[in-house]
Amino acid sequence: MARPVTHALPCTGGIGLRAPHYRQVLDRLPRLGWVEVHSENFFGGGAPLSTLLRVREHYPVSLHGVGMGLASTTPLDKAHLSALHRLCDAVKPAAISEHLSWNSAAGMVINDLLPFPYTQEALSHVATRIEQVQEELGRQLLVENLSSYLSFAHSEMTEGAFLAELTQRTGCGILFDVENLYVNACNLGVDAKAFIKAIPAEAVKEYHLAGYSVRDGCLVDTHDHPVCPEVWEMYEFALQHIGPRPTLIEWDSDIPPLPVLMGEAAKAQQRLEICYACAE
């Protein structure tokens, strides 16, 4: 019997649920630990929301926002925030997350996830914004580390230290995207192990895994390939230092058949189980 799932995300492999798979998932109800969707795609009503509510009857759902612009210096978009609030009330997601990025300046919105210098100034600004969002939603927000194609020489701390400080100041959680960290390690020389040690393990509530592509020597976070061996290795390192957490396979372009996605989630699941076995 279908019943609404209200508890937190299960500590298993999950998949990013995208439009090409809605029908198959609802018709066949395959064994999926949980699913994640992009929040903005379900703002409003009609077919998108009603589809998500049906999915919600069978699987725990995580809402992953891409448009809030936590680090933008323009005022927080109240209409956007209240649309997210309404969606949360309707879906009652097991987790809700946004990115550590900005998207609005000079009277425009850049619909992307943009990096900024990790300064004390930015830290207090982003902390205030996270608090505003958490207050509006009445719950904890998970904040995801960013894949970036450049960094800033005047950053005063690492992204890991910045995230750690944010969790201290706001009580937010961390969504640790392992592939984003790998992209930054390759592109920008970020010390991945230092990042993993810098973020507080207890604040990490979810992992993301995905594939990338390469353009002119730059790793681009395109979510259009299987997870590569180096990212699996980094994930295993994270599991040892942080511990097992719900783990999502993200695939947004050249989306493969559902069994391929489920196969990737099963690979994450195997590693989670080994991690549990070691802990016992």
């Binding site: 439009a19 992009h38 077919a47 992953h64 996830l113 681009v220 976070d221 979510h223 993200e250």
Partner: peptide, 20 residues
């Protein structure tokens, strides 16, 4: 009528289109 879902355009990956 369920199958007429149109894909939402908001996502968190970098754009893949080849027209650099």
């Amino acid at each position: 009528c369920f199958g007429v879902a149109k894909a939402g355009k908001n996502d968190c990956s970098s754009n893949k289109s080849a027209h650099s």
